[in-house]
Amino acid sequence: MNFMTNHRIGPENGEKQSPDSPVLMPFALIGRTVMDWVNRMGSAAIFLSKALLHILGRKQLFKTVQQIYYIGARSITIIMLVSLFTGMVLGLQSYHALLKFGAAGAVGSLVSLSLIMELGPVLTAIMITARAGSAITAEIGIQRISEQIDALHTMRINPIRYLISPKLSAAIISFPLLTAVFDLIGILGGYVSAVVLLGLNGGVYVHSISTYVDWRDINNGFIKSIVFAVIVATVCCYQGYFAHMRRDSHGAQAVGLATTSAVVTSCVLVLVSDYVVTSLLV
């Protein structure tokens, strides 16, 4: 008896190997995952381009203003709160660190540059994702599973034009504005901790900012915030819009998972794209 023949794994007599065979399974799995990822990226890109195409429609202004209120105006409080404490912590930490080198006068520039170039756009994007992004996914997801999006199709209303484009344009307008608010309040927070609480000279704090921060830094921060706006709006809308296509769940559970997925994906993509955009702008 040939021992090896009984345990041989693989094709015999020119037989084709099924992708489900134990040997090919890991490769098939990787292949499927990659294909799936490529498909989703392609589909998201088409989704984004369709949404961009309808941003400037005749009847879009009112809907965009409405969305600016939901995404932007209603996020101001949380953005102000987070930015104030971020600025205060930055001021506190940098004051003590720079004091060791006798450079406490540079606290203002350190706080402001950190906020304007990095923390402002990134934290604003993450906070809006948590507050408005999740709501967008849940709203669109529910509209999908309750056939409201199908109803739009039957009424010959383009659902992407009606639902997605106003949210995308509102995000593109709101993100830089909220980033600006974040930067200003953050710098004020740094002033409170470094000047008011720790006794640094106020004039030195302001002078340091005006000396080291230039328009290019501010513009770069805004460019980042626009990139993040497009990413967050696309990911959140896309996840909700295709909540019914999820393989892992159906109905309300699919909307819940789509919302979680939208928040996690948005945050990860914001951080990844932050590096990419920074490396291109530096």
């Binding site: 509209q143 309750s146 056939e147 409201q148 199908d150 109803a151 039957t154 009424m155």
Partner: peptide, 12 residues
């Protein structure tokens, strides 16, 4: 064509 959905599909 118009369509009346089983679950109404009204915008809530």
């Amino acid at each position: 064509i118009s369509y009346m959905f089983q679950g109404n599909a009204l915008f809530d």
